[in-house]
Amino acid sequence: MSHETTSTLLRVRGRTVAEYVPEPDLDQRLSPRPYLHPVRTLGGVVVTDILPEDHPHHLGVSIGVQDVDGDNLWGGRTYVRDQGYTWLDDHGRIVPQSWGRQADNGFGQRLRWLGRDGRLLLTEDRTVFAGAIAGRDDAWLLDFAYTLTAPADRDVTLGSPATNGRPDGAGYGGFFWRAALGKVRVLTATGEGEDQVNGTSEPWLALIGEGAGGAPYTLVFSGLGDGDDWFTRAYGYPGVNIALAYRRTLTIPAGGRISRRHRVAVVDGALARDQLVGLS
């Protein structure tokens, strides 16, 4: 894979299952950042969406946080306490610094999280790999890990609309998967629907949806870090977020770091709850 290409392909069993765009040319108000799209099942069903009309700052599979020391690295309007969503000149971006190991099934990368004025907010080390799942020809596994490191001279605090006063638990920020537009269900081992799964820390969460033409697919997410929570949408739009600041802000101390590793099984077909065990 070449460093000069505008995108990188991930392949499993000889099939392209995802495309990674490291530095998209996007409006600054979308908080430009790397993303995976399209992501496909082994059967070819597209299971991500990008630049949707309802939330054009949703970029396939990406990392984003709406409040990074006052800068918006999620995109769109910013939730302001006692005002609600407001357009502010506060949008930063996440840009590549260097590549690490690269192969047909994945890569490593160092990125810089930059504020609206170009100052360095965080350094990120990211690894993304796609692999087969033993004994299954209908599923593959995305392994997405990242470490965020604060500058040596200052703490960095991550927040969300919820921590900034939004009253309905919209604590999103972190790893986010905007699913293909269509009817979806979200469930865990013990609950189903937004009301029962949002704000929980169950070991796994599944989104069961329909791609183009009604083709069914299942996504099984795992890998919450200490203090993380699930945040999903199944009604207004389909998406799953592993939230870093659902109830309270998260501060990375000066020179310190936080690390996360998430896994997503991408499966053809709509699985029943008892078929989800073992895929997380």
Rank of each mutant, 00 (worst) to 15 (best):
L187S: 08
L187A: 12
L187P: 06
L187R: 15
A189P: 04
A189G: 14
A189C: 02
A189I: 04
A189H: 06
T190H: 08
G191S: 06
G191Q: 05
G191F: 05
G191I: 06
G193Y: 04
G193W: 02
E194H: 05
D195R: 14
D195P: 02
Q196P: 01
Q196M: 05
V197L: 07
V197M: 07
V197C: 06
V197S: 09
V197I: 10
V197G: 08
G199Y: 02
G199T: 00
T200Y: 04
T200F: 07
S201V: 02
S201K: 07
S201M: 02
S201T: 06
E202D: 15
E202G: 00
P203E: 08
P203G: 10
P203D: 09
W204F: 15
W204H: 10
L205I: 11
A206Y: 13
A206C: 12
A206R: 13
A206E: 13
A206V: 13
L207I: 12
L207Y: 15
G209S: 09
G209T: 06
G211L: 00
G211W: 02
G211H: 01
G211M: 00
A212Y: 00
A212L: 03
G214H: 05
G214M: 02
G214S: 04
G214F: 03
A215I: 00
A215G: 00
A215W: 00
A215T: 01
P216D: 05
Y217V: 00
Y217T: 00
Y217Q: 00
Y217R: 00
Y217M: 00
Y217I: 01
Y217S: 00
Y217H: 01
T218I: 06
T218R: 09
L219W: 14
L219P: 12
V220H: 09
V220W: 06
V220Y: 06
F221I: 07
F221M: 07
F221G: 11
S222L: 03
S222Q: 09
S222H: 01
S222D: 11
G223M: 03
L224I: 08
L224G: 09
L224Y: 08
G225F: 08
G225C: 02
D226T: 14
G227E: 05
D228W: 05
D228M: 15
D229H: 14
D229Q: 11
W230D: 07
W230Y: 14
W230R: 07
F231S: 08
F231C: 07
F231D: 03
F231N: 14
T232E: 15
T232G: 15
T232M: 14
Y235V: 15
G236E: 10
G236D: 09
Y237M: 14
Y237F: 15
Y237S: 12
Y237P: 02
P238K: 12
P238V: 13
P238C: 12
V240T: 14
V240W: 13
V240F: 12
N241A: 13
N241H: 12
N241R: 12
I242M: 14
I242N: 10
